[in-house]
Simulated assay, not measured.
Amino acid sequence: MEQDLLIEQFKAGRLAAFKELHTRYAPNICGVIHTILRNRERAEELTQDVFVKIWDYRASYDASKGRFFTWVLNIARNAAIDELRSKSHKEQQLNLHTTFFVDMAEEQEEQTFGVDMNRVKGLIRGLGKKCHQIIELLYFKGLTQKESSDYLDIPLGTVKTRVRNCISRLRKNLVD
């Protein structure tokens, strides 16, 4: 079924469309959550919670603001970070580095969850040390920009500038 029609039917409350979207996206969403939590069982549970949430909030999806998958991915990422914070994993997670996540991806080549892990690894490796730090703290460890600023002992404005610069470099690398 065409993606746009499927999403329209989903927004209209058609259960068949929801099931199809779940079939298409659940493995990828579970993979992202697992990357953040490092717990397969909890990632699977949280994936189901994310899909319940998107069903409940389906009317709030606006295609003019971004792709459907990006919308779901943001909900999943936020849920995983909330989970990390609720379990007080911050101290444990601070000991992890970007190389840990790249190595983890290499260990799970047979379970890429539909993501081109070689491309992701290449994009991460193509960034500098400062971008690695920001990506680790904000996206993998779930810290806020303020917490990252305190952890790195740099001004909050510097963290925000680095985030913008890193995102810009990633976008440029994706286009190239």
Rank of each mutant, 00 (worst) to 15 (best):
I135W: 05
G31C: 11
R164C: 04
R85K: 15
S86E: 13
K160R: 15
I81M: 01
T35H: 06
C30Q: 15
F100N: 12
R119N: 08
V115Q: 05
K65N: 11
V159F: 09
Q93H: 11
S168C: 09
I7Q: 06
K141A: 13
R119D: 05
A26M: 06
D103W: 06
N74Y: 03
Y139F: 12
A105R: 10
I36K: 00
R171T: 12
A26L: 02
D116G: 04
N78E: 07
A43G: 02
T98P: 02
E106T: 07
K65H: 04
T112M: 09
N165D: 09
M1V: 09
D153W: 10
V72C: 12
E2Y: 12
S168G: 14
T70S: 13
L84E: 07
Q133L: 12
T23W: 07
T70I: 03
L152M: 15
V52Q: 12
I134R: 08
T23N: 11
K130P: 08
M117G: 04
P27C: 11
A59R: 15
H34Q: 15
S88W: 03
G122Q: 11
H89P: 03
K121Q: 13
F10R: 05
Q93E: 07
E20I: 08
Y139A: 00
I33Y: 00
S60T: 15
G13M: 04
A79E: 03
R169D: 14
A76D: 01
K87S: 06
E45N: 15
N78D: 09
R85S: 06
D150V: 14
V102K: 11
Q145P: 00
D176W: 12
Q108M: 10
V163K: 12
L46G: 02
L138C: 05
S64V: 13
T47S: 14
T112F: 11
L137G: 10
T99M: 08
C30N: 14
D116S: 10
A12R: 10
K141R: 13
I167M: 08
R67Q: 07
S88M: 07
V102D: 05
K11H: 00
E107N: 07
I36D: 01
A16I: 04
T99L: 08
Q145S: 14
N39W: 03
F101Q: 10
H97F: 11
V32Q: 10
F69N: 09
T161D: 10
S148A: 15
K90H: 10
G157E: 04
E110T: 11
R77D: 00
N95I: 07
D116M: 02
C131W: 05
F68E: 03
R169H: 12
R58P: 00
E20W: 04
